[in-house]
Design a protein around this nucleic acid. Structure first.
Lengths: 249, 249
DNA sequence: GAATGACAAATTTTCGAAAATCTGTTGATT
DNA sequence: AATCAACAGATTTTCGAAAATTTGTCATTC
């Protein structure tokens, strides 16, 4: 029913993967909601095999859970997991940042400057009501953090960072519109300060700023998340943003 | 052709997954060797769909690589990756160990004692010529290291440890027979010392011992690995241990 | 009324063939 | 000789139906 709308060069499996990944991240499906193959096929026009492949991959990445003969569900969210994820990010990314500051060359500096610039531009351009622009903003945000640690010299560390980012972005998306407009927080300033410290090769300051940045994010997201939990306790405001295809019993 | 030989309660996809995982880890297939569906179907009697699912999952876990319309291959091995993986293990596991020593309760201590004991028993029982006993030894070894950090309080950290273990075990397997019989190394003593320090809540000593343990492992594996690379350069001793089903051009 | 079992519906999982894509070869052309 | 197109064979990817499994219902029994 809903068009797939993607590049034709990728296999259907890849298309299904990016589609589902995007939909889960942006909260189209509620946590723990079953992902039924017939339903997904209906929605996307993609057959069982590619859908299954995508779901298997998402399961391995932690966005989806599966039980042996009972199919797939959107992975749950919890305050504990949010905290754990953010603290682990701090632990891993500060190390990667230290190493990058130690080893970074001109290209690394250039990547930081340019990704920070792109983030700023998208930030001006983005509007809280436009989901596409928010997704783009999220991508720029990710690019910046990737750039910061891109001279760590450890492929493994970078993979871990990427995976942890994926684990945390789900908590951010639904409240991004709130956050970016919160006057109490000037994200661009925080990012700029981190970039400055990194470029000045001031490792301890950069690490300090990055840690504060993530701790603050964690706290704000915790707040937003417990709000949501509270609200979804009464039946009124359900979580799913679009097309809750069939309410759960 | 080759019997599947597994519990019937699991889906074929799961069976295919554990089978392939085991075969790749134990070096049945050479790194970079293409894994052709027809071939795997022949070998296992399992259909395309479950095999594909298993390969997708293994790809997400880093044991297999895939290119869009060219199928799957066994992931490559390299000295750089070995070093990176081991250093990252040190970084992550020492932190997890510190936290476990801080937070561990009676159950944690019991898990350490019992897994160390099981490791010792399997070590006596194992014979270098029996692949099954070596696989069992490897499992006990893993259990012990998992037990050490099992009180870290961070699910994410534990997942990362598990994934890194998977990344490193491939380097160990083929040379396990050499290693365990090397007189220069008394693995059981190393493990015992680590366990003692952990149980005595001596964090810095435990971390020091664990680091030395992994560094030594990394060095020995590096040696074994460059030996293999050198030997496989001339055509004679190919890498694959069993059934190189059809030589690559 | 609770528990049990049998049956029907819904869903996942698997298979085998068809479609799409890649690889290598042959032969014609420049 | 090098380049290229067309073709055949091999391989991956996808589809749709069949098989296996779980879930829900309803009558029967205790």
């Amino acid at each position: 029913m809903v068009r797939t709308a993607s590049k034709s060069s990728k296999s259907l499996g890849e298309q299904a993967y990016s589609m589902l990944r995007h939909e889960i991240i942006s909260g189209v499906y509620a946590p723990e909601q079953p992902l039924r193959l017939a339903q997904l096929q209906e929605r996307s026009g993609i057959g069982f095999s590619p859908l299954r492949e995508a779901l298997t991959r998402l399961t391995a990445e932690g966005l989806v859970t599966s039980e042996s003969m009972r199919g797939f569900r959107v992975a749950p969210l919890s305050l504990d997991d949010l905290r754990d994820t953010m603290e682990t990010r701090i632990f891993v990314e500060t190390e990667a940042l230290r190493r990058s500051i130690e080893r970074g060359d001109d290209d690394w500096e250039a990547r930081i400057v340019s990704s920070l610039h792109a983030l700023g531009r998208q930030n001006e351009r983005s509007h809280p009501d436009d989901p596409d622009s928010l997704a783009a903003l999220e991508d720029r945000h990710r690019d910046f953090h990737v750039a910061l640690i891109s001279a760590s010299g450890s492929r493994r560390l970078e993979q871990i960072v990427d995976n942890l980012y994926l684990g945390s972005v789900r908590y951010r998306m639904p409240s991004l519109s709130n956050l970016s407009s919160t006057p109490a927080r000037d994200l661009m300033n925080e990012h700029g300060a981190i970039a400055d410290a990194a470029l000045a090769r001031d490792a301890s300051r950069a690490v300090e700023l990055l840690t504060a940045h993530y701790r603050l994010t964690a706290d704000l997201l915790s707040l937003a998340h417990s709000d949501r939990m509270a609200r979804s306790a009464d039946g009124a405001g359900r979580w799913a943003l679009r097309t809750p295809p069939s309410a759960e019993p």
